[in-house]
Nucleic acid binder design. Structure first.
Lengths: 229, 229
DNA sequence: ATTGCAATGTACCTGGGAGTTAATTTCGTG
DNA sequence: CACGAAATTAACTCCCAGGTACATTGCAAT
Protein backbone atom coordinates (compact mmCIF):
# COMPACT_ATOMS: atom_id res chain seq x y z
CA UNK A 1 0.00 0.00 0.00
CA UNK A 2 1.02 3.58 0.37
CA UNK A 3 2.64 2.75 3.65
CA UNK A 4 5.70 4.92 4.07
CA UNK A 5 5.09 6.97 0.94
CA UNK A 6 7.87 9.49 0.91
CA UNK A 7 9.04 11.67 3.74
CA UNK A 8 5.73 13.51 4.08
CA UNK A 9 4.67 11.27 6.94
CA UNK A 10 2.74 13.96 8.79
CA UNK A 11 -0.73 12.45 9.14
CA UNK A 12 0.59 9.00 9.99
CA UNK A 13 -1.55 7.53 12.73
CA UNK A 14 1.42 5.38 13.64
CA UNK A 15 2.03 4.51 17.28
CA UNK A 16 -0.99 3.87 19.46
CA UNK A 17 -1.09 2.77 23.06
CA UNK A 18 -2.46 -0.53 24.29
CA UNK A 19 -5.13 0.13 26.90
CA UNK A 20 -7.89 -2.46 26.65
CA UNK A 21 -9.74 -1.45 29.80
CA UNK A 22 -9.95 2.17 28.85
CA UNK A 23 -11.07 1.24 25.37
CA UNK A 24 -13.84 -0.98 26.72
CA UNK A 25 -14.98 1.70 29.13
CA UNK A 26 -14.98 4.28 26.39
CA UNK A 27 -17.07 2.04 24.16
CA UNK A 28 -19.53 1.24 26.95
CA UNK A 29 -19.97 4.88 27.88
CA UNK A 30 -20.83 5.93 24.37
CA UNK A 31 -22.90 2.82 23.72
CA UNK A 32 -24.92 3.49 26.87
CA UNK A 33 -25.78 6.92 25.60
CA UNK A 34 -26.75 5.67 22.19
CA UNK A 35 -28.80 2.69 23.31
CA UNK A 36 -30.54 4.79 25.94
CA UNK A 37 -31.31 7.43 23.35
CA UNK A 38 -32.26 5.25 20.40
CA UNK A 39 -33.13 1.79 21.66
CA UNK A 40 -31.65 -1.50 20.56
CA UNK A 41 -32.86 -1.47 16.97
CA UNK A 42 -32.54 2.29 16.71
CA UNK A 43 -28.94 2.55 17.80
CA UNK A 44 -26.34 2.48 15.09
CA UNK A 45 -23.01 0.73 15.52
CA UNK A 46 -21.31 2.97 13.00
CA UNK A 47 -22.54 5.98 14.89
CA UNK A 48 -21.34 4.57 18.20
CA UNK A 49 -17.96 3.78 16.70
CA UNK A 50 -17.65 7.24 15.26
CA UNK A 51 -18.21 8.79 18.68
CA UNK A 52 -15.71 6.59 20.49
CA UNK A 53 -11.98 7.14 20.55
CA UNK A 54 -11.60 3.78 18.85
CA UNK A 55 -13.05 1.92 15.87
CA UNK A 56 -15.98 -0.27 14.99
CA UNK A 57 -13.72 -3.28 14.79
CA UNK A 58 -12.91 -2.91 18.47
CA UNK A 59 -16.57 -3.07 19.39
CA UNK A 60 -16.88 -6.42 17.67
CA UNK A 61 -13.55 -7.51 19.09
CA UNK A 62 -14.64 -6.99 22.66
CA UNK A 63 -18.40 -7.47 22.56
CA UNK A 64 -19.03 -9.86 19.71
CA UNK A 65 -22.09 -8.27 18.21
CA UNK A 66 -24.68 -5.58 18.76
CA UNK A 67 -26.65 -7.66 21.21
CA UNK A 68 -23.55 -8.46 23.22
CA UNK A 69 -22.76 -4.80 23.48
CA UNK A 70 -26.28 -4.03 24.56
CA UNK A 71 -26.18 -6.74 27.20
CA UNK A 72 -22.98 -5.32 28.69
CA UNK A 73 -24.44 -1.82 28.68
CA UNK A 74 -27.51 -3.06 30.49
CA UNK A 75 -25.60 -4.91 33.18
CA UNK A 76 -23.26 -2.02 33.71
CA UNK A 77 -26.01 0.49 34.27
CA UNK A 78 -27.93 -1.85 36.56
CA UNK A 79 -24.83 -2.42 38.67
CA UNK A 80 -24.12 1.24 38.91
CA UNK A 81 -27.57 2.17 40.15
CA UNK A 82 -27.87 -0.70 42.60
CA UNK A 83 -24.48 0.15 44.05
CA UNK A 84 -25.64 3.68 44.66
CA UNK A 85 -28.77 2.43 46.39
CA UNK A 86 -26.81 0.00 48.49
CA UNK A 87 -24.66 2.80 49.84
CA UNK A 88 -27.65 4.10 51.76
CA UNK A 89 -27.75 2.82 55.29
CA UNK A 90 -31.03 2.94 57.20
CA UNK A 91 -30.39 0.17 59.72
CA UNK A 92 -29.96 2.66 62.53
CA UNK A 93 -33.09 4.62 61.79
CA UNK A 94 -36.50 3.86 63.27
CA UNK A 95 -38.82 2.07 60.85
CA UNK A 96 -40.88 5.04 59.72
CA UNK A 97 -37.98 7.45 59.15
CA UNK A 98 -36.13 4.57 57.50
CA UNK A 99 -38.99 3.97 55.14
CA UNK A 100 -39.31 7.64 54.39
CA UNK A 101 -35.60 7.83 53.69
CA UNK A 102 -35.65 4.80 51.39
CA UNK A 103 -38.60 6.16 49.46
CA UNK A 104 -37.01 9.54 49.01
CA UNK A 105 -33.74 7.95 47.97
CA UNK A 106 -35.47 5.78 45.39
CA UNK A 107 -37.34 8.75 44.01
CA UNK A 108 -34.13 10.76 43.76
CA UNK A 109 -31.99 8.00 42.30
CA UNK A 110 -34.50 7.53 39.51
CA UNK A 111 -34.52 11.23 38.75
CA UNK A 112 -30.73 11.20 38.69
CA UNK A 113 -30.39 8.21 36.37
CA UNK A 114 -32.50 8.82 33.30
CA UNK A 115 -30.30 6.55 31.22
CA UNK A 116 -31.04 3.66 33.52
CA UNK A 117 -34.73 4.37 33.22
CA UNK A 118 -34.62 4.49 29.46
CA UNK A 119 -32.69 1.25 29.22
CA UNK A 120 -35.16 -0.49 31.49
CA UNK A 121 -38.00 0.84 29.33
CA UNK A 122 -36.25 -0.55 26.30
CA UNK A 123 -35.71 -3.82 28.08
CA UNK A 124 -39.42 -4.05 28.78
CA UNK A 125 -40.19 -3.45 25.14
CA UNK A 126 -38.03 -6.51 24.56
CA UNK A 127 -39.89 -8.43 27.27
CA UNK A 128 -36.84 -8.38 29.53
CA UNK A 129 -35.09 -10.85 27.27
CA UNK A 130 -31.63 -9.61 28.17
CA UNK A 131 -32.30 -9.16 31.86
CA UNK A 132 -33.39 -12.78 31.91
CA UNK A 133 -30.19 -13.82 30.16
CA UNK A 134 -28.07 -11.93 32.64
CA UNK A 135 -26.18 -13.79 35.34
CA UNK A 136 -25.60 -10.76 37.51
CA UNK A 137 -28.75 -8.66 37.44
CA UNK A 138 -30.95 -10.94 39.55
CA UNK A 139 -28.37 -10.89 42.32
CA UNK A 140 -28.28 -7.13 42.41
CA UNK A 141 -31.97 -6.89 43.11
CA UNK A 142 -31.99 -8.87 46.30
CA UNK A 143 -30.30 -6.16 48.32
CA UNK A 144 -33.06 -3.60 48.16
CA UNK A 145 -35.72 -6.14 49.11
CA UNK A 146 -33.66 -7.31 52.07
CA UNK A 147 -33.40 -3.79 53.32
CA UNK A 148 -37.15 -3.26 53.09
CA UNK A 149 -37.79 -6.63 54.72
CA UNK A 150 -35.71 -5.58 57.69
CA UNK A 151 -37.61 -2.34 58.07
CA UNK A 152 -40.91 -4.18 57.79
CA UNK A 153 -39.99 -6.67 60.47
CA UNK A 154 -38.86 -4.03 62.88
CA UNK A 155 -41.91 -1.91 62.15
CA UNK A 156 -44.33 -4.73 62.71
CA UNK A 157 -42.55 -5.76 65.89
CA UNK A 158 -42.79 -2.28 67.33
CA UNK A 159 -46.37 -1.92 66.20
CA UNK A 160 -45.96 1.12 63.93
CA UNK A 161 -46.48 -0.79 60.68
CA UNK A 162 -49.55 -2.71 59.63
CA UNK A 163 -49.26 -6.47 59.79
CA UNK A 164 -50.00 -6.78 56.08
CA UNK A 165 -47.05 -4.59 55.07
CA UNK A 166 -45.02 -6.46 52.48
CA UNK A 167 -41.48 -5.60 51.37
CA UNK A 168 -42.03 -6.53 47.75
CA UNK A 169 -45.23 -4.54 47.55
CA UNK A 170 -43.48 -1.62 49.19
CA UNK A 171 -40.73 -1.77 46.64
CA UNK A 172 -43.32 -1.94 43.90
CA UNK A 173 -45.16 1.11 45.20
CA UNK A 174 -42.03 3.16 45.51
CA UNK A 175 -40.66 2.07 42.19
CA UNK A 176 -43.83 2.57 40.23
CA UNK A 177 -44.10 6.21 41.19
CA UNK A 178 -40.39 6.90 40.91
CA UNK A 179 -40.03 5.15 37.61
CA UNK A 180 -43.10 6.61 35.95
CA UNK A 181 -42.09 10.07 37.08
CA UNK A 182 -39.08 9.85 34.79
CA UNK A 183 -40.11 7.38 32.14
CA UNK A 184 -43.33 9.11 31.15
CA UNK A 185 -42.36 12.70 31.63
CA UNK A 186 -42.36 13.32 27.89
CA UNK A 187 -45.88 12.11 27.12
CA UNK A 188 -47.29 13.34 30.41
CA UNK A 189 -45.95 16.84 29.89
CA UNK A 190 -47.08 16.83 26.28
CA UNK A 191 -50.57 15.84 27.36
CA UNK A 192 -51.08 17.81 30.57
CA UNK A 193 -48.41 20.48 30.67
CA UNK A 194 -45.19 20.34 32.63
CA UNK A 195 -46.43 21.69 35.93
CA UNK A 196 -45.53 18.47 37.73
CA UNK A 197 -42.04 18.51 36.29
CA UNK A 198 -40.92 21.93 37.33
CA UNK A 199 -38.65 22.18 40.34
CA UNK A 200 -41.64 23.07 42.50
CA UNK A 201 -43.82 20.35 41.02
CA UNK A 202 -41.19 17.71 41.63
CA UNK A 203 -40.88 18.75 45.24
CA UNK A 204 -44.60 18.34 45.76
CA UNK A 205 -44.67 15.05 43.88
CA UNK A 206 -41.82 13.64 45.91
CA UNK A 207 -43.68 14.51 49.08
CA UNK A 208 -46.86 12.98 47.71
CA UNK A 209 -45.07 9.75 46.90
CA UNK A 210 -43.68 9.52 50.41
CA UNK A 211 -47.16 10.15 51.79
CA UNK A 212 -48.68 7.50 49.57
CA UNK A 213 -46.18 4.86 50.55
CA UNK A 214 -46.20 5.62 54.24
CA UNK A 215 -49.95 6.00 54.21
CA UNK A 216 -50.25 2.50 52.85
CA UNK A 217 -48.33 0.78 55.64
CA UNK A 218 -47.91 3.09 58.63
CA UNK A 219 -50.72 2.77 61.14
CA UNK A 220 -52.58 6.04 61.54
CA UNK A 221 -50.28 7.95 59.23
CA UNK A 222 -51.19 11.58 58.68
CA UNK A 223 -49.73 13.21 55.57
CA UNK A 224 -48.40 16.74 55.85
CA UNK A 225 -50.70 19.37 54.44
CA UNK A 226 -49.18 20.76 51.28
CA UNK A 227 -49.57 24.47 50.74
CA UNK A 228 -52.08 24.69 47.94
CA UNK A 229 -50.64 26.76 45.12
CA UNK B 1 -49.06 -13.33 -16.57
CA UNK B 2 -51.16 -16.35 -15.78
CA UNK B 3 -54.23 -14.21 -15.57
CA UNK B 4 -57.24 -16.27 -16.54
CA UNK B 5 -55.35 -19.53 -16.97
CA UNK B 6 -57.93 -22.09 -17.82
CA UNK B 7 -61.28 -22.70 -16.21
CA UNK B 8 -59.78 -23.68 -12.85
CA UNK B 9 -60.24 -20.16 -11.59
CA UNK B 10 -60.72 -21.03 -7.93
CA UNK B 11 -57.81 -19.22 -6.26
CA UNK B 12 -57.76 -16.42 -8.81
CA UNK B 13 -56.93 -13.13 -7.22
CA UNK B 14 -58.65 -11.54 -10.17
CA UNK B 15 -61.28 -8.95 -9.50
CA UNK B 16 -60.65 -7.26 -6.21
CA UNK B 17 -63.11 -5.06 -4.43
CA UNK B 18 -62.51 -1.41 -3.74
CA UNK B 19 -62.82 -0.90 -0.03
CA UNK B 20 -60.45 1.80 1.11
CA UNK B 21 -61.73 2.03 4.65
CA UNK B 22 -61.41 -1.66 5.30
CA UNK B 23 -57.94 -1.67 3.79
CA UNK B 24 -56.85 1.20 6.02
CA UNK B 25 -58.30 -0.47 9.07
CA UNK B 26 -56.61 -3.71 8.22
CA UNK B 27 -53.27 -1.99 7.82
CA UNK B 28 -53.65 -0.06 11.07
CA UNK B 29 -54.59 -3.16 13.03
CA UNK B 30 -51.56 -5.08 11.90
CA UNK B 31 -49.28 -2.07 12.17
CA UNK B 32 -50.45 -1.47 15.73
CA UNK B 33 -49.43 -4.99 16.66
CA UNK B 34 -46.06 -4.68 14.99
CA UNK B 35 -45.16 -1.24 16.31
CA UNK B 36 -46.31 -2.20 19.79
CA UNK B 37 -44.24 -5.35 19.64
CA UNK B 38 -41.09 -4.04 17.97
CA UNK B 39 -40.99 -0.29 18.35
CA UNK B 40 -40.66 2.28 15.59
CA UNK B 41 -37.20 1.35 14.41
CA UNK B 42 -37.71 -2.32 15.13
CA UNK B 43 -40.89 -2.73 13.14
CA UNK B 44 -40.54 -3.84 9.56
CA UNK B 45 -42.77 -2.52 6.81
CA UNK B 46 -42.29 -5.61 4.70
CA UNK B 47 -43.35 -7.72 7.63
CA UNK B 48 -46.40 -5.56 8.26
CA UNK B 49 -47.34 -5.71 4.60
CA UNK B 50 -46.96 -9.46 4.52
CA UNK B 51 -49.39 -9.83 7.42
CA UNK B 52 -52.04 -7.54 5.97
CA UNK B 53 -54.57 -8.56 3.36
CA UNK B 54 -53.04 -5.95 1.09
CA UNK B 55 -49.61 -4.85 -0.12
CA UNK B 56 -46.76 -2.62 0.89
CA UNK B 57 -47.71 -0.27 -1.86
CA UNK B 58 -51.01 0.42 -0.12
CA UNK B 59 -49.28 1.34 3.11
CA UNK B 60 -47.32 4.03 1.35
CA UNK B 61 -50.36 5.05 -0.64
CA UNK B 62 -52.40 5.76 2.46
CA UNK B 63 -49.85 6.70 5.06
CA UNK B 64 -46.95 8.17 3.16
CA UNK B 65 -44.09 6.64 5.05
CA UNK B 66 -43.22 4.64 8.11
CA UNK B 67 -43.49 7.60 10.42
CA UNK B 68 -46.88 8.53 9.02
CA UNK B 69 -48.11 5.03 9.68
CA UNK B 70 -46.75 5.13 13.20
CA UNK B 71 -48.42 8.46 13.86
CA UNK B 72 -51.80 7.13 12.76
CA UNK B 73 -51.36 4.02 14.87
CA UNK B 74 -50.58 6.14 17.88
CA UNK B 75 -53.55 8.44 17.47
CA UNK B 76 -55.88 5.53 16.90
CA UNK B 77 -54.86 3.71 20.03
CA UNK B 78 -55.02 6.88 22.14
CA UNK B 79 -58.52 7.62 20.89
CA UNK B 80 -59.68 4.14 21.56
CA UNK B 81 -58.52 4.10 25.17
CA UNK B 82 -59.76 7.57 26.00
CA UNK B 83 -63.15 6.73 24.55
CA UNK B 84 -63.36 3.73 26.82
CA UNK B 85 -62.46 5.85 29.82
CA UNK B 86 -64.96 8.49 28.89
CA UNK B 87 -67.76 5.96 28.91
CA UNK B 88 -67.44 5.69 32.66
CA UNK B 89 -69.86 7.97 34.47
CA UNK B 90 -69.22 8.83 38.09
CA UNK B 91 -71.12 12.09 38.32
CA UNK B 92 -73.87 10.50 40.36
CA UNK B 93 -71.54 8.86 42.86
CA UNK B 94 -70.35 10.46 46.07
CA UNK B 95 -66.78 11.78 45.86
CA UNK B 96 -65.03 8.91 47.61
CA UNK B 97 -66.80 6.07 45.78
CA UNK B 98 -66.35 8.06 42.58
CA UNK B 99 -62.65 8.32 43.15
CA UNK B 100 -62.42 4.66 44.01
CA UNK B 101 -64.30 3.79 40.88
CA UNK B 102 -62.13 5.98 38.68
CA UNK B 103 -58.97 4.54 40.15
CA UNK B 104 -60.12 0.98 39.66
CA UNK B 105 -61.23 1.73 36.14
CA UNK B 106 -57.87 3.26 35.28
CA UNK B 107 -56.04 0.31 36.72
CA UNK B 108 -58.19 -2.10 34.75
CA UNK B 109 -58.12 -0.21 31.49
CA UNK B 110 -54.32 -0.24 31.57
CA UNK B 111 -54.26 -3.96 32.22
CA UNK B 112 -56.64 -4.48 29.34
CA UNK B 113 -54.71 -2.37 26.84
CA UNK B 114 -51.12 -3.54 26.78
CA UNK B 115 -50.66 -2.32 23.24
CA UNK B 116 -51.52 1.19 24.31
CA UNK B 117 -49.01 0.92 27.12
CA UNK B 118 -46.27 -0.30 24.84
CA UNK B 119 -46.88 2.41 22.29
CA UNK B 120 -46.76 5.07 24.98
CA UNK B 121 -43.49 3.58 26.24
CA UNK B 122 -42.14 3.75 22.72
CA UNK B 123 -43.38 7.29 22.40
CA UNK B 124 -41.48 8.24 25.54
CA UNK B 125 -38.32 6.70 24.14
CA UNK B 126 -38.87 9.11 21.28
CA UNK B 127 -39.44 11.98 23.70
CA UNK B 128 -43.10 12.20 22.77
CA UNK B 129 -42.17 13.61 19.39
CA UNK B 130 -45.26 12.22 17.68
CA UNK B 131 -47.66 12.99 20.50
CA UNK B 132 -46.48 16.57 20.28
CA UNK B 133 -47.06 16.60 16.54
CA UNK B 134 -50.57 15.25 16.94
CA UNK B 135 -53.56 17.54 16.58
CA UNK B 136 -55.98 15.25 18.32
CA UNK B 137 -54.21 13.67 21.27
CA UNK B 138 -54.03 16.75 23.49
CA UNK B 139 -57.80 17.19 23.19
CA UNK B 140 -58.46 13.63 24.33
CA UNK B 141 -56.64 14.12 27.58
CA UNK B 142 -58.77 16.95 28.89
CA UNK B 143 -61.75 14.75 29.64
CA UNK B 144 -60.20 12.64 32.36
CA UNK B 145 -58.85 15.68 34.18
CA UNK B 146 -62.21 17.39 34.05
CA UNK B 147 -63.82 14.37 35.61
CA UNK B 148 -61.31 14.33 38.45
CA UNK B 149 -61.64 18.07 38.92
CA UNK B 150 -65.36 17.67 39.42
CA UNK B 151 -64.88 14.97 42.01
CA UNK B 152 -62.28 17.08 43.81
CA UNK B 153 -64.54 20.09 43.97
CA UNK B 154 -67.45 18.14 45.31
CA UNK B 155 -65.23 16.34 47.79
CA UNK B 156 -63.68 19.52 49.13
CA UNK B 157 -67.07 21.17 49.38
CA UNK B 158 -68.51 18.33 51.42
CA UNK B 159 -65.38 18.14 53.54
CA UNK B 160 -64.36 14.57 52.77
CA UNK B 161 -61.33 15.50 50.67
CA UNK B 162 -58.29 17.42 51.79
CA UNK B 163 -58.06 20.97 50.56
CA UNK B 164 -54.77 20.28 48.84
CA UNK B 165 -56.23 17.52 46.66
CA UNK B 166 -55.34 18.25 43.06
CA UNK B 167 -56.91 16.62 40.00
CA UNK B 168 -53.70 16.51 37.98
CA UNK B 169 -51.77 15.01 40.87
CA UNK B 170 -54.52 12.49 41.38
CA UNK B 171 -54.37 11.50 37.77
CA UNK B 172 -50.61 11.21 38.02
CA UNK B 173 -50.81 8.97 41.06
CA UNK B 174 -53.38 6.69 39.51
CA UNK B 175 -51.61 6.55 36.19
CA UNK B 176 -48.16 5.95 37.56
CA UNK B 177 -49.21 2.82 39.39
CA UNK B 178 -51.50 1.57 36.65
CA UNK B 179 -49.00 2.20 33.91
CA UNK B 180 -45.98 0.77 35.67
CA UNK B 181 -47.94 -2.31 36.57
CA UNK B 182 -48.16 -3.20 32.91
CA UNK B 183 -45.15 -1.48 31.40
CA UNK B 184 -42.58 -2.96 33.74
CA UNK B 185 -44.06 -6.36 34.35
CA UNK B 186 -41.33 -8.05 32.33
CA UNK B 187 -38.31 -6.64 34.16
CA UNK B 188 -40.04 -6.64 37.52
CA UNK B 189 -41.00 -10.29 37.24
CA UNK B 190 -37.56 -11.20 35.94
CA UNK B 191 -35.98 -9.45 38.91
CA UNK B 192 -38.33 -10.30 41.76
CA UNK B 193 -40.49 -13.16 40.61
CA UNK B 194 -44.02 -12.90 39.30
CA UNK B 195 -45.90 -13.03 42.59
CA UNK B 196 -47.39 -9.58 42.02
CA UNK B 197 -48.55 -10.53 38.56
CA UNK B 198 -50.53 -13.62 39.33
CA UNK B 199 -54.29 -13.29 39.48
CA UNK B 200 -54.12 -13.08 43.26
CA UNK B 201 -51.22 -10.65 43.22
CA UNK B 202 -53.00 -8.34 40.84
CA UNK B 203 -56.07 -8.30 43.05
CA UNK B 204 -54.00 -7.25 46.02
CA UNK B 205 -52.10 -4.68 44.02
CA UNK B 206 -55.25 -3.15 42.65
CA UNK B 207 -56.57 -2.78 46.18
CA UNK B 208 -53.26 -1.29 47.30
CA UNK B 209 -53.37 1.27 44.54
CA UNK B 210 -56.86 2.33 45.51
CA UNK B 211 -55.74 2.62 49.12
CA UNK B 212 -52.71 4.69 48.18
CA UNK B 213 -54.71 7.13 46.10
CA UNK B 214 -57.58 7.48 48.53
CA UNK B 215 -55.17 7.63 51.44
CA UNK B 216 -53.48 10.59 49.83
CA UNK B 217 -56.56 12.78 49.53
CA UNK B 218 -59.41 11.42 51.68
CA UNK B 219 -59.42 12.84 55.18
CA UNK B 220 -58.97 10.11 57.78
CA UNK B 221 -58.99 7.32 55.23
CA UNK B 222 -58.52 3.83 56.66
CA UNK B 223 -57.35 1.20 54.18
CA UNK B 224 -58.89 -2.26 54.38
CA UNK B 225 -56.74 -4.83 56.05
CA UNK B 226 -55.51 -7.29 53.46
CA UNK B 227 -55.39 -10.90 54.53
CA UNK B 228 -51.70 -11.55 54.83
CA UNK B 229 -50.80 -14.54 52.70
C1' DA C 1 -68.32 3.12 -24.66
C1' DT C 2 -65.19 6.31 -23.11
C1' DT C 3 -62.84 8.78 -19.98
C1' DG C 4 -60.64 9.91 -15.72
C1' DC C 5 -59.42 9.25 -11.18
C1' DA C 6 -58.91 6.39 -7.15
C1' DA C 7 -57.23 2.05 -5.79
C1' DT C 8 -54.20 -1.83 -6.43
C1' DG C 9 -50.39 -5.15 -8.15
C1' DT C 10 -45.50 -6.15 -9.42
C1' DA C 11 -41.11 -5.34 -9.81
C1' DC C 12 -37.38 -2.78 -8.88
C1' DC C 13 -33.80 0.50 -6.84
C1' DT C 14 -30.83 2.09 -3.35
C1' DG C 15 -28.46 3.27 0.96
C1' DG C 16 -27.15 2.15 5.04
C1' DG C 17 -25.85 -0.65 8.63
C1' DA C 18 -24.36 -5.16 10.73
C1' DG C 19 -20.68 -7.84 10.55
C1' DT C 20 -15.86 -9.55 8.33
C1' DT C 21 -11.21 -10.05 6.36
C1' DA C 22 -6.70 -9.39 6.45
C1' DA C 23 -2.86 -6.80 7.35
C1' DT C 24 -0.24 -4.15 10.88
C1' DT C 25 1.46 -2.67 15.39
C1' DT C 26 2.47 -3.30 20.62
C1' DC C 27 4.61 -5.40 24.01
C1' DG C 28 5.49 -8.98 27.50
C1' DT C 29 8.43 -13.06 27.88
C1' DG C 30 12.01 -16.40 27.10
C1' DC D 1 15.94 -9.31 20.22
C1' DA D 2 12.85 -12.44 18.31
C1' DC D 3 8.42 -14.19 18.43
C1' DG D 4 3.78 -14.86 19.28
C1' DA D 5 -0.40 -13.33 21.34
C1' DA D 6 -3.20 -9.36 22.06
C1' DA D 7 -4.70 -5.05 20.28
C1' DT D 8 -5.73 -2.12 16.51
C1' DT D 9 -6.45 -0.22 11.69
C1' DA D 10 -8.55 0.22 7.23
C1' DA D 11 -11.15 -1.43 3.70
C1' DC D 12 -14.51 -4.43 2.28
C1' DT D 13 -18.97 -7.48 1.65
C1' DC D 14 -23.59 -8.36 1.72
C1' DC D 15 -28.19 -8.15 2.49
C1' DC D 16 -32.15 -6.16 4.22
C1' DA D 17 -35.58 -2.73 4.61
C1' DG D 18 -37.49 1.71 3.27
C1' DG D 19 -39.10 3.69 -0.51
C1' DT D 20 -40.36 4.26 -5.72
C1' DA D 21 -41.78 3.57 -10.82
C1' DC D 22 -44.89 2.17 -13.66
C1' DA D 23 -48.42 -0.59 -15.35
C1' DT D 24 -53.21 -2.15 -14.41
C1' DT D 25 -57.85 -2.53 -12.70
C1' DG D 26 -62.38 -0.93 -10.70
C1' DC D 27 -65.96 2.17 -10.89
C1' DA D 28 -68.73 6.25 -11.28
C1' DA D 29 -70.26 9.90 -14.31
C1' DT D 30 -71.06 11.67 -18.90
Amino acid sequence: MDRGTGPADKKRKTSWKKDPEAVKENILTIATEEFAAQGLAGANINEIAKRTATSKRMIYYYFGDKEGLYQHVLERVYSSLRNTEQALNVADLDPVPALRRLTEATFDSHVNNPQFIRLVMIENIHNAEYVKKSEIIPKLNKAIIDKLADVCERGKASGVLRQDADPLELHWMTSSASFYNVSNEATFSASFGNSLHTVEGQKRLRQRVVDMVLGAVVIGYQPNELHSN
